[in-house]
């Protein structure tokens, strides 16, 4: 566990670089995290990230790709376009959440 400065905010991160404190995140931080992995945020990205944030607040765990598609209403194909190759992990990273624990 260490502290990083993202967009001028001091945030706790784990050894891989994922944020560990839900309330340390804001959209400015999200934009900076996305930039670090080569993603430029658009409204379509924010729809996914806002769903992940609110779903985590309710469920206590990070939504999987399937949950973002079925409950969040963003089609699977689109998730692979917005967050290429590894959407589950990349979405979680930008949203300041842990990697999803579920298998499906």
């Amino acid at each position: 566990m260490s502290v990083a400065t993202i967009a001028g905010h001091e945030v706790q991160i784990d050894e891989e670089g994922f944020m560990t404190v839900y309330d340390e995140w804001d959209e400015e931080v999200g934009t900076a995290l996305a930039g670090q992995i080569g993603i430029e945020m658009t409204e379509a990205h924010w729809k996914v990230i806002r769903f992940l944030r609110s779903d985590f607040a309710e469920q206590g765990q990070t939504a999987t790709i399937r949950r973002v598609a079925t409950v969040g209403g963003v089609p699977t194909k689109e998730l692979f376009t917005l967050f290429p190759k590894k959407p589950a992990k990349k979405m979680a990273y930008v949203a300041g959440l842990p990697k999803p624990a579920g298998c499906v």
Binding site: V3, A4, T5, I13, E16, G17, G38, P84, K85, K89
Partner: peptide
């Protein structure tokens, strides 16, 4: 303390390359 930790900013390796 914070200055040394700032330097440790870790970006996950998503294996894109």
């Amino acid at each position: 303390m914070t200055t040394t930790e700032e330097a440790t900013t870790v970006i996950p390796d998503f294996g894109d390359d």
